[in-house]
């Protein structure tokens, strides 16, 4: 097996994670970092919620990519639009004028037939990679519960459909997805119980059920270590009732809550550390684990995206 390439050397990166862990933020940060290095980046939101464009302080995007920040084009996946483009570009269907009923029929089949929606999504992304319209395609992918189904769709379709044009289409998609020098998956998690468990399960499933390689795990919202051991001893001394009383008198106000907040922060950090250790112990050896700091910011926008991109760059050793 060849060495895992750096995230920024890949052409197609799926970013997934349990709901609420900040996968969109990480996808945006990765796009920002790549664009800063002079790459043309397409970033695609699959479960359109409009969060992605807001991280660049741009208005929501649709299926047609739009430049939302220098070097970054953003789009939202729309399977129907993808189907239309697909029929036009790949199949040269003679019925282009009568696409309406056909699209409707397809939508209908897609509701019931497994993987049709998934294949249209993955197909569009692979297409952008194949055509080299961009240097890097970053996908704000479905949550970890759904990503395996999506990545496994071309294979599933291949198993179900033995002949026909769909079959020949899935062949080249599979090639791109299976090429570990081109395509990778990034799992985002937080140092909490369920996200860590889900990430460990995901790592196994991705390996067993898909041909895609997991390239990195990003741990988001890692709280800073407040103290070393010596500081912690002193902190406990400061929390004695006598010391607290003196401190309050000197400071001219009740400082208890300030110290109480630090104790809470230490506890939160400690709980997180235990989960982080479990994560590191459970992941395959050699899989990079990148730590992103908790953002003590007023809100999320370009400023935090830039900060996150910087942290990501540092973790990647740039």
């Amino acid at each position: 097996m060849t060495a895992a390439p750096d995230l920024l050397q890949l052409k197609l990166v799926f970013v997934t994670g349990k709901g609420g862990v900040g996968k969109t933020t990480v996808a945006a940060a990765l796009a920002y970092l790549a664009a800063e290095r002079g790459k043309r980046v397409l970033v695609c939101e699959v479960d359109a919620k409009g969060d992605l464009s807001s991280l660049f302080e741009a208005t929501p995007t649709d299926f047609t990519p739009r430049e939302v920040s220098p070097g970054i084009w953003s789009m939202s996946m729309d399977t129907e639009a993808s189907l239309r483009e697909y029929l036009k570009l790949h199949l040269r269907i003679p019925l282009v004028g009568r696409i309406g009923p056909l699209a409707k029929a397809f939508d209908f089949v897609a509701t019931a037939a497994p993987g049709v929606r998934e294949i249209l999504t993955v197909g569009k992304l692979c297409y952008e990679v194949r055509e080299r319209h961009y240097d890097l395609v970053v996908v704000d992918a479905p949550a970890s519960g759904h990503i395996v189904g999506q990545l496994a769709a071309p294979q599933a379709i291949n198993d179900l459909v033995k002949v026909g044009l769909i079959r020949s289409q899935t062949d080249w998609m599979l090639q791109i997805l299976s090429d570990h020098q081109q395509t990778g998956l990034v799992a985002v998690t937080t140092p909490e119980e369920m996200p860590v468990s889900e990430t460990l399960e995901l790592a196994t499933r991705v390996q067993e059920e898909t041909t895609v390689r997991m390239s990195a795990v990003v741990v988001n919202r890692v709280l800073p270590e407040l103290f070393g051991q010596r500081e912690e001893e002193i902190f406990e001394q400061l929390r004695s009732p006598e010391a607290e009383a003196v401190l309050a008198t000197r400071a001219g106000g009740d400082t208890t809550k300030v110290l109480e907040a630090a104790r809470l922060a230490v506890t939160m950090r400690r709980t997180g550390s235990a989960h982080l250790q479990r994560l590191q112990a459970g992941l395959p050896k050699g899989l990079p684990v990148l730590l992103m700091p908790f953002m003590f910011s007023r809100g999320f926008g370009v400023r935090t995206t830039r900060q996150m991109a910087q942290s990501l760059g540092e973790e990647l050793g740039h």
Binding site: L226, F227, R230, E231, I234, F235, Q237, L238, A243, V246, L247, R250, A251, K257, V258, L259, A261, A262, L264, A265, F296, S297, R298
Partner: peptide
């Protein structure tokens, strides 16, 4: 000034107070 004599190491204590207070302000933002 505040850390003076509160613990067996005033230098570390001053550092701890700064850390603690900054942490409070950070979490206050959140």
């Amino acid at each position: 000034e505040l850390a003076e004599g509160l613990s067996d190491d005033p230098v570390v204590a001053a550092r701890v107070l700064v850390e603690v207070a900054e942490s409070f302000l950070n979490f206050g933002v959140v």
